[in-house]
Design a protein around this nucleic acid. Structure first.
Lengths: 371, 371
DNA sequence: GTGAAAGCGCTAACAC
DNA sequence: GTGTTAGCGCTTTCAC
């Protein structure tokens, strides 16, 4: 004999009215009690809360949202690897994703993850229009700038990870790409290198800024910028490898590499190795992103670090600010160079510091000196 | 002078009633038209659809779900790196995440991403109980088995990526870990290696199965299983590196490594290199997961591949089946060995095949013969 | 302190 | 074909 069910609602989940009946109160009271309202008698509240807990009851969020006229969900959209652009598999984006999940959860928001390619941009707006999400975090500026501008203009709350370019009408959070490029290049110069290759596709705004930093550093040191020493290596794995192989087959006249991602740097590392070139003795290598992998490979990889947790926090702040109609802002995050083996000063016994920070106070999370 | 707003609903989003008024019909008709019902006059429907499109209108999904009594969202839960267990930053999980996003999106489901640690397991059930999600995909069996069992027993639709252990009361999808371990080890034996180290923490069910495969292969070839040749290297980066350094400092008596993740394999690679050991000449190395990185590093890494896209599809199928109350099933995915440079036959000029597949028909996506 | 009642935006009988 | 109506599960005045 199966358990009897209440007459009208067979087979459905538990809801407030069930709790109400069991507690001998009305739904209003249950609602209030569960919301922690102090309008409810302490004893009553405790009874209801205990009951709900023991029954593993959780109020229907959809109904709550409908009634309250708002949602507690933020959508995060990721690029769908369309071509050779930076794909979602990029570990940097992925780590950012993880941090975003934490940042959102800890603030009580749900995270809706969506991958889109440029054909389906309309769906992104639909996420907000349909009430599924209250705002959107866009990871990567692969979408043409004008699309993001359009979304923002139509009042869709968005916050974008990418190059922080002045004059945009949407919130942007990013590292200081120009500084990052500068730090990396200055470091390589300090290592005594003069023929420093720049590896990255400057069609991407962030890469373009890193190139500017590279150029600034060279010019600042009184060197020339040699166009023969730049290569538009794509971010995506196989393409990157092919591109690098081709490059190394035709160019040998460099003593350092500045790569716009750690993946590119690591791949380059391996290829140099295969060609009998030693890192860092023959070629110093600096990457970008400071993936956790950077400290695990051999040689460990010098890299430009962007603070991920701060990035996630800033993105959440930004999308919430956007939703409140605040004026769009640019958030530029601290960007530091983490020195490791791949760019040790060749033939120098000097005990080098491990971290060259933008500001003096940035030592947190890094430990000092050894070689 | 601001635009006049309709009397009763100031400042709110557009909804069906607005479309209805503009089209001169009732909301029901709008609802039907937008749902593509053929109960609506073609002309009327076209008018409504066009109107909605031009106004970028999208029906409130929360209200739809509430009315329909169901949601179109599936929650994906990821481990929160609590200790030295396989963390979310693991590129394999991440790639799986991307594939899941695609699989869900293409089937019309939204994906809710949540990270949890073991203290907050109750929240996971809340996702379903509160109607936010219709089911849960769990990535990794880091949660104690009994928790998953409890969830399933209480009727929460779950599907788990991990070791496919018979007798469980929930759906499981995973690679053939035992076969993977066997393939890797047999390959190393075929490379002429006899002192093959197993690197992985067998407390994890998946790793334990890989170890069984390793043992099977050794025994099958008539070799002994040497306990001194196994090391519980953790998955997490820094800990893995430390563990490996320690290991190599004390153990030198091996000519091959079978690592339970590509990350471990790559780190080991670098450390061996630093110690003057050549891969594959002195030590052959095989990894697990076949990350895209495996084909980019130098030397390129032989690895056991698990089909990610198929995994994502299977997980979605499974969670939907669970929701329909179907009996829990185990899905074991095809597992193949991808041969690359890190395990080339030493001192042999033979042109080796690139891929050794599990079954003859598995040539899809892999080329070449076998030996 | 608690209950009754209205309604969030939508869908699905049921009428016509 | 289209409109009318009654809720989906919840929150929140407004009474008492």
């Amino acid at each position: 004999m199966a358990v009897m069910r209440s007459e009208k609602r067979p087979n459905t989940r538990m809801q407030m009215i069930d709790i109400a009946r069991m507690a001998g109160v009305s739904v209003s009271t249950v609602s209030r009690a569960l919301a922690g309202s102090d309008l409810v008698n302490d004893a009553t509240r405790k009874k209801i809360v205990d009951l709900a807990k023991s029954l593993r009851f959780s109020a229907n969020v959809g109904a709550q949202n409908l009634r309250r006229g708002q949602s507690q969900t933020i959508a995060v959209v990721l690029p769908k690897s369309n071509a050779d652009q930076q794909p979602v598999s990029d570990p940097f984006f992925i780590s950012l994703l993880g941090e975003l999940a934490d940042a959102l959860t800890s603030r009580g928001y749900d995270m809706l993850l969506t991958r889109v390619n440029e054909d389906h941009i309309d769906d992104v707006e639909g996420l907000v229009v349909s009430g599924r999400a209250l705002g959107i975090v866009v990871i990567g500026q692969w979408l043409h700038h004008y699309v993001l501008t359009g979304l923002a203009a139509r009042g869709v709350p968005i916050a974008v990870w990418g190059a922080t370019l002045p004059g945009s009408n949407y919130f942007t959070v990013g590292g200081d790409n120009r500084l990052g490029g500068k730090l990396a290049t200055e470091h390589l110069i300090a290592c005594g290198r003069r023929r420093i290759m720049f590896l990255g596709d400057t069609r991407l705004p962030e890469v373009a800024l890193r190139f500017e930093g590279y150029r600034d550093a060279l010019i600042g040191a009184g060197y020339l910028v040699n166009p023969g020493l730049t290569a538009a290596v794509p971010f995506e794995g196989k393409a990157a490898r092919r591109s690098l192989e081709d490059l190394f087959d035709h160019t040998a006249d460099f003593d350092a590499l500045f790569a716009c991602s750690d993946l590119i740097a690591m791949t380059a590392n391996g290829l140099l190795n295969a060609r009998g070139l030693r890192v860092p003795d023959d070629v110093c290598v600096v990457g970008y992103d400071d993936l956790s992998l950077a400290s695990q490979v051999h040689p460990t990889l010098t890299s430009v670090r962007q603070p991920l947790a701060a990035a996630a926090q800033a993105l959440v702040d930004a999308v919430l600010a956007a939703r409140e109609g605040k004026a769009p802002a640019l958030v530029v995050l601290e960007t530091t160079l983490i020195q490791r083996e791949s760019s040790q000063l060749a033939a120098s016994g000097v005990n080098k510091p491990k971290v060259a920070a933008r500001s003096a106070k940035s030592a947190k999370g890094t430990k000092g000196a050894k070689r």
